[in-house]
Every structure is written in C-alpha cells, then in structure tokens.
Design a protein around this nucleic acid. Structure first.
Lengths: 191, 191
DNA sequence: CAATTTGTACAGTTTTTTCTGTACATACGG
DNA sequence: CCGTATGTACAGAAAAAACTGTACAAATTG
C-alpha cells in the first residue's frame, strides 16, 4: 500500500480501510473472470497506486515473492489490464493499471472470446464439411440422413452464433457498442 | 456417445470423428470461460445427444463416476447451459443442452457480470461515502485533499463503468443487443 | 407402505495449480 | 568494459481443485 505523507493516523486508517475494501472486492471478483485471487489482489493494489510501481514494492506490499509478482504482473500486462512504463534513470521495470475500465473490459473479452471463437469455428467448419460430404455420398440412405440432419442443424446454428459473436466483438473493438449502450445517460433517465 | 443404428461402420467412424472434434474443441475452450475441461467435455457430449440423457449414461460415455456427473451437470444447470427434463415413467433425472446459444451466452454473462457488479459497486459506494465524509470533515487540509482526490476520481470512474455494464447486461437480457448487432446479416454484407 | 432405485454429501485420494527460492542471463550505470 | 542490479526460468514445496467410492436420504413404483 502506498505510503501516505502528512496525514494524521486517524485519517490514514480511514483511507486504508476504504481502499482495502475496494481492493479485496475487486480481487475476489476478478476470480469470476478466470483471474487468480492473488493476481486480482495485485491489480487492486496497483489501482490505488498514484505512481507506477516496481516489482519489489509489489512484493513488499503483497507480502509475496518477487517471482510471483513477475508472473502475476505479466498476466495482467498480457490482458492489457496493466501497462509497463519506463522511467529514465531507473533500471527497474515500472507498472501501472490501465485506468480506462471500458477499454480494459473491451480488450479482455475481445481477447478471450476471439480466441475461443477461432478455434471452435474452425472445428465446426471442418466437421461440417466432413458430414456434408458423407451426406452427399449416400443421398438415399434414409437412416444416415436421419442421423446427419440433426448434427448438421446444430452445427449450423452454432456457426450462426459465432458469426454473431464475431460482430459483437467488432463492436467492442470499434466502440460502436457505445452507441447502443452509451457510456453515460442523462440524469433524467437514470433509474 | 450416442449409439447409432443402421449405419455402416465406415459411416459411423466419420460421424463420431466429426462429433469428437467439435466436442473437444468446445470442452477445451469453455475452460476460457472458467469451466473445467471435463465439464466442458460433458457439455459437448450432451450437445450432440438427440435425446435427454441420464447421469448413468453420461458417466458411461465420459468414463467417469456418477458423482462427477452429478456435480458437473449441476454446474451446467446453474449456468443455464443445460436443462433438466422430466419424462413420465422414469424416475431418473434427464438433462439436455439449451440449444439456443444466443440465450446461453446472454444468461452466462448476465449471471457472472451481475454478480461481480453488485458486490464491487457496493464496495465502491461504501468506500466513496467514507472518503467523502473524511474529505468534508477537513476541507482545508491540503495534504489530505491531495491524497483523497485521486482516490475519489478513480472510484467515480469505476462506478461510471459499472453503471454502463449494468445497462449492457440489460440489453443482453432484453434482447436489445440484437438491434445493434443483429443475429443475422444480409448475404451482401457478409465479409 | 415397503422395496428399490436414484441423486448427492462427504471424506479421502489424486491431479493440477500456485507459490517460493535459487540460479542465471541480461542490461544498465559507472 | 566491468560490476552490480534486475527480471525470469526452473525445480521443488505448498495449496487448491477435481475426482472417486461409500453411505445415506429422498423419491417413485408396485
């Protein structure tokens, strides 16, 4: 936790407690997104840091090994949730959170979804081709057709879904999503 | 895997292979969504089943214990990816996949996101109140203000993001999302 | 209502993942 | 160009999660 200068102990306690609540909440819930609780906790720590942080400081604050900080922060950088920062005159690597959560959100799910999409779509298409070939080979084999048709229908519907997901991801990446769901709405429309 | 009647061995091999490819791809990639590979595999198995399936059949097909099937299928039902089905004259529970992947997608992320949203928003708001109170208590304490302001700004921005996410989830649940990103697009616009 | 079948709770085992400490390659400052 | 500081690969230890078998409670059928 960042050291705080020139405050009374009471003030500091309040601030640390307020920060801690948010950090732990974030840390716990990032776990729903497939991020370890410790890494989520690290993310929360960096969130309240007002200056880029070194691996050593992180290890100190988290009471964990520098190795863990290294791997943890690398995960966060890969997910574009944290950025590496250079500072002249220091040979240490520095890191800070990406504060634009809209961007973080878009990057995170674009990355994950696109990855799954590509692999699954490719498997679906390959299998579809094979089944269609088999289908065309024996167009009069009723038993075969009866088995193939449901499979082909399911595969087609799955492909349809992935084509849609692909366009949804596009809208995340382009920012078009914010025209349907604006970042802000006028106060009068708020619930 | 579902038994197939009245087909030549060659035909059966092709079909099983095509199915297996898709099942394994789905199983592996659901793991990106925080679902165990075995449970993902179970989901894939159910996907190609043309009739609801019992726990015993699943265990047999997956070569796993019935206990695992029970917990696995419960996870999938909780996520609304699989539905429980009743059939007269059988005392076994039967399960089948939700074939509407658009619905599955919407349910899955609505559930997860809403859960994290509620907890985090509540923590953010509680901490915001505490910090604002502290802020108002000593409006002339420059050192204090300097520390509080960045924290409050970050919290406000995070709240803004969650308010947006809340509306995004609403659009998933209401189906409004499909007006920005239609399920289908005309062939002429396809890439 | 009894007999039997079915699903799951639970404890223990196995497998997987996370975390640490050391050792080392790299890079920067002097 | 040397010396030191820094990040990470790797192997092993610790922790967590997945899986199984048994035992039992709930439910359905005759």
């Amino acid at each position: 936790m960042e050291t705080i200068q020139g405050l009374s102990p009471e003030q500091e306690v309040v601030i640390q407690k307020a920060r801690k609540r948010v950090i732990e909440s974030i840390g716990k819930n990032l776990d729903l997104y497939g991020i370890t609780q410790s890494i989520g906790h690290l993310y929360g720590l960096l969130f309240f840091q007002n200056h880029p942080m070194t691996l050593d400081k992180m290890g100190e604050a988290m009471e964990m090994s520098k190795t863990s900080m290294s791997t943890g922060v690398r995960t966060l950088v890969d997910l574009k949730m944290v950025n590496k920062v250079w500072e002249k005159g220091s040979r240490k690597d520095l890191y800070e959170v990406e504060l634009d959560w809209f961007q973080t959100f878009a990057d995170f799910f674009s990355l994950k979804w696109r990855k799954a999409l590509e692999i699954n779509l490719s498997a679906l298409r390959k299998s579809k081709t094979e089944l269609r070939n088999l289908c065309e080979q024996s167009p009069d084999d009723a038993a075969l057709q009866a088995v193939l048709q449901p499979d082909l229908d399911k595969i087609d519907e799955a492909i349809r879904y992935y084509m849609w997901l692909d366009r949804l991801i596009d809208s995340f990446e382009s920012g078009d999503i914010y025209s349907l769901v604006p970042k802000d709405i006028p106060p009068s429309e708020r619930p």
